[in-house]
Simulated assay, not measured.
Amino acid sequence: MVCYPLHYTVIMHGGLCLGLAAGCLVAGFMNSLMETIITFRLLLCHRVINHFAYETLAVLWLVCVDIYFNKVMVVASVFLVIMLPCSLVLFSYGHIVVAILRICSTQRCGKASGTCASHLTVVCMYFGATIFTYLGPRSAFSVEKEKMVALFYAVGAPMLNPLIYSLRNKEVMAALSKFLEKFRDKG
């Protein structure tokens, strides 16, 4: 769609948007349901989760039976819910970069690449932390490190998302500059 911006309304019609949203909701629900069912069937040795949120991996650390099947299901889930969307996003950004390189004007190229860079920063922060959590090396594992990375992808990346996008807005930047000038004048 990036390559055909004038066709956006034809390509992304209401039915397609509704179908994509419904597909995401159904896939998320089915993934959560599957992980919940296979996790709650396990025998737990401990009752305290050393984590700030319910994470499948945090619960699996409490189990005192073989969890091979659960690990296989987590890897399958990671592929479908994390790696597949991440690959599609990166594939899309590859097309965006090619489209940007075709632009002749330096000003338009700079603006487009700036927008693309801010989007890609948020995508890399979220997917990078998530992939590290679920596919990272277990040799570097520590409960505290795991909690920090999970906190980053669950709270940090979504919180930075509006900040990064709003700083691209001229009015927001002007208001921020005025605020910083007032703050600087008082100091």
Score class of each variant (00 low, 15 high):
residue 1 M to A: 12
residue 1 M to P: 07
residue 2 V to W: 09
residue 2 V to Q: 05
residue 7 H to Y: 12
residue 8 Y to G: 08
residue 8 Y to W: 14
residue 8 Y to R: 15
residue 9 T to A: 13
residue 11 I to L: 07
residue 16 L to Q: 02
residue 17 C to R: 14
residue 17 C to D: 08
residue 19 G to A: 08
residue 20 L to Q: 04
residue 22 A to N: 06
residue 25 L to Q: 06
residue 31 N to Y: 10
residue 36 T to I: 06
residue 36 T to C: 11
residue 40 F to C: 07
residue 41 R to M: 11
residue 44 L to M: 15
residue 45 C to R: 14
residue 46 H to K: 14
residue 47 R to C: 12
residue 49 I to Y: 04
residue 49 I to Q: 06
residue 49 I to R: 07
residue 49 I to E: 06
residue 53 A to H: 11
residue 55 E to N: 13
residue 56 T to E: 03
residue 59 V to K: 03
residue 60 L to W: 07
residue 62 L to P: 02
residue 65 V to C: 13
residue 65 V to W: 06
residue 66 D to Y: 00
residue 67 I to M: 04
residue 70 N to S: 12
residue 70 N to Y: 01
residue 70 N to V: 01
residue 70 N to P: 02
residue 71 K to C: 15
residue 71 K to V: 11
residue 72 V to F: 10
residue 72 V to C: 14
residue 74 V to T: 01
residue 76 A to K: 13
residue 77 S to C: 15
residue 77 S to Q: 05
residue 79 F to D: 04
residue 80 L to M: 10
residue 80 L to W: 04
residue 82 I to N: 05
residue 88 L to P: 03
residue 89 V to E: 03
residue 91 F to I: 02
residue 95 H to I: 07
residue 96 I to M: 15
residue 96 I to W: 10
residue 99 A to I: 05
residue 99 A to W: 02
residue 102 R to D: 15
residue 107 Q to V: 15
residue 109 C to S: 12
residue 112 A to P: 06
residue 113 S to W: 00
residue 117 A to R: 06
residue 119 H to D: 07
residue 123 V to R: 00
residue 124 C to M: 15
residue 127 F to A: 03
residue 129 A to G: 11
residue 130 T to C: 15
residue 133 T to I: 10
residue 133 T to R: 00
residue 134 Y to C: 00
residue 142 S to M: 00
residue 142 S to T: 04
residue 143 V to E: 11
residue 144 E to K: 12
residue 144 E to A: 13
residue 148 M to R: 08
residue 150 A to P: 01
residue 150 A to Q: 05
residue 151 L to I: 03
residue 154 A to W: 07
residue 157 A to S: 09
residue 157 A to Q: 00
residue 158 P to G: 03
residue 158 P to C: 01
residue 159 M to G: 11
residue 161 N to L: 14
residue 162 P to R: 01
residue 162 P to E: 02
residue 163 L to T: 08
residue 173 M to P: 00
residue 176 L to A: 15
residue 177 S to F: 10
residue 177 S to A: 15
residue 178 K to C: 14
residue 180 L to I: 06
residue 182 K to C: 12
residue 182 K to L: 11
residue 184 R to T: 13
